[in-house]
Deep mutational scan, measured.
Amino acid sequence: MASDGVVVEIGKVTGSVGTTVEIPVYFRGVPSKGIANCDFVFRYDPNVLEIIGIDPGDIIVDPNPTKSFDTAIYPDRKIIVFLFAEDSGTGAYAITKDGVFAKIRATVKSSAPGYITFDEVGGFADNDLVEQKVSFIDGGVNVGNATPTKGATPTNTATPTK
């Protein structure tokens, strides 16, 4: 695992066909100046998982989280898009600690492993708008004895992609 920078880890949970599971997305290594904004994309298989919603985690402190935390689910493109932009203008609602960034709610549709993997990152910046190093650890849903650990090695991303 990367020793510096922010680590975004997609949790690994267990479920069975027809059940709804909650998959946490963790941030670790949050910089001392916090995270003022970030955007990134995960990939998944809508034939295996139906993403039914995404909720902000406990490290989102904006009293009205829909102003700073936004997501979009595109089953036709097989992606989930995340956007966080601190909304106070003063840094008061920045992410300042490690913990759960988001909770992905999904219904298991198939007995195949439900991988959720890193696809791309736009950027991560602290309260001074300084770009942060970030790496990703894939996860998803274990169905029966299947284990979604494909790509469990962190993917280092030093520069934003478009």
Rank of each mutant, 00 (worst) to 15 (best):
V7K: 10
P65K: 04
V130P: 00
T147S: 09
F27L: 07
S88H: 07
I60Q: 12
G123R: 00
P63W: 12
V6S: 03
I54F: 02
G11K: 05
I80R: 00
T153I: 08
D45G: 13
F69P: 12
Q132M: 03
F124Y: 02
S110L: 12
S111P: 09
V130N: 06
Y93T: 14
D87C: 15
G122V: 00
I116L: 05
E9L: 08
V7M: 15
I23M: 12
T161E: 15
I52K: 04
E120C: 02
I35N: 13
N47T: 05
D119R: 02
D126Y: 01
V108D: 08
T96L: 08
V61R: 05
T149F: 11
I73H: 09
K67T: 14
V13R: 09
F124E: 00
F27H: 10
V48A: 09
G151V: 14
T90A: 09
K150H: 07
P148L: 04
I79S: 01
G151W: 11
D62E: 11
I54H: 03
T20G: 06
G89F: 03
R28I: 08
V61A: 11
T66H: 14
P56G: 10
V13D: 05
F118S: 07
T153H: 08
A152P: 12
G151L: 10
G53F: 06
V8P: 05
S88L: 10
I59R: 14
K67I: 09
T71C: 04
V100W: 04
I52V: 06
P56W: 03
V141N: 13
V130S: 12
V7L: 10
L129I: 14
I51S: 07
T66I: 13
N64Q: 15
I54G: 02
D39G: 00
T159A: 09
N47A: 05
K150I: 08
F101C: 04
K78I: 01
P113M: 02
G11T: 08
A94R: 08
G5I: 15
F84M: 11
I10E: 05
T159S: 13
V21A: 06
T147G: 10
I60L: 11
A106L: 10
A112D: 12
Y74V: 00
G57A: 12
I52G: 06
F136R: 09
K97P: 12
V30S: 14
P63F: 14
A72Q: 00
G144Q: 08
V13I: 11
I23E: 14
Y44H: 05
T159C: 13
G144N: 13
A72R: 01
S3E: 10
N127T: 02
A92K: 08
D76H: 02
S68M: 13
T155M: 11
N156V: 10
G18M: 08
I10L: 07
A92D: 13
V21D: 13
N37A: 14
F118K: 12
E120R: 01
A72S: 01
E131Q: 10
K33R: 07
T159P: 12
Y93A: 14
K133Y: 06
I104W: 14
V25R: 00
D126L: 02
R105S: 13
I59F: 14
V7P: 10
D39R: 00
K97S: 11
A94F: 01
K78Y: 14
N142W: 08
G11I: 05
G15N: 09
K78C: 04
G139L: 02
V61K: 14
D76N: 02
I59T: 13
G114L: 07
E50N: 11
D39E: 01
F69V: 04
F40H: 08
T107Q: 09
K78F: 02
C38S: 08
N47K: 05
G140Y: 09
A102F: 07
K12P: 06
K109Q: 07
I51H: 06
N142Q: 09
V141D: 12
T20L: 06
I95W: 01
A85H: 06
K109I: 09
R28V: 06
P75Y: 13
D55M: 15
I137R: 12
C38R: 00
F84T: 02
S16G: 08
Y26I: 02
D70L: 15
A112F: 03
T14G: 06
T66K: 05
P63C: 08
I95V: 04
I73K: 03
T90C: 11
P63K: 14
P154G: 11
D138L: 09
G144W: 08
S32F: 05
D138C: 05
E22A: 06
C38K: 01
S16Y: 06
A125T: 02
V81K: 01
N47M: 15
D45V: 05
I116V: 07
Y74N: 00
V100S: 13
A92H: 11
V108P: 09
S88C: 06
T117M: 13
F69N: 01
K78W: 02
F136P: 08
A112Q: 11
N156K: 10
G99A: 09
T149A: 11
S68G: 11
V30N: 15
G57W: 13
K103Q: 10
G144Y: 13
N64G: 02
G99R: 13
Y115C: 06
V134N: 04
V130K: 06
N64S: 08
A2G: 04
V6N: 11
I54N: 05
E86Q: 01
E120K: 01
K103V: 08
T107V: 12
R105V: 14
T96P: 10
S110P: 12
K78H: 06
I116P: 01
I52H: 07
G11V: 09
I51T: 09
D119F: 06
E86N: 00
D98K: 15
A112W: 02
G139F: 10
G122I: 00
Y74D: 00
P113D: 12
N47V: 09
V134T: 13
D4H: 04
K33S: 03
S16E: 15
L83D: 02
N64P: 11
R28P: 10
V141Y: 11
L83R: 00
D119Y: 14
V30M: 02
K103S: 10
L83A: 00
K67A: 11
L83K: 00
P63A: 14
V30I: 13
V41P: 00
R77G: 06
L129D: 00
P160N: 13
D76Q: 04
T66P: 09
T90M: 09
A102I: 09
V21I: 07
I73Y: 04
R28E: 03
V25T: 06
E120F: 04
V141F: 14
T96E: 13
P148Q: 03
I79G: 02
P113S: 04
R28F: 11
F69I: 03
P160Q: 11
D45M: 08
T157A: 09
K67M: 14
D39H: 00
T157R: 11
T155K: 13
D45I: 13
N127V: 02
F27D: 11
L129S: 02
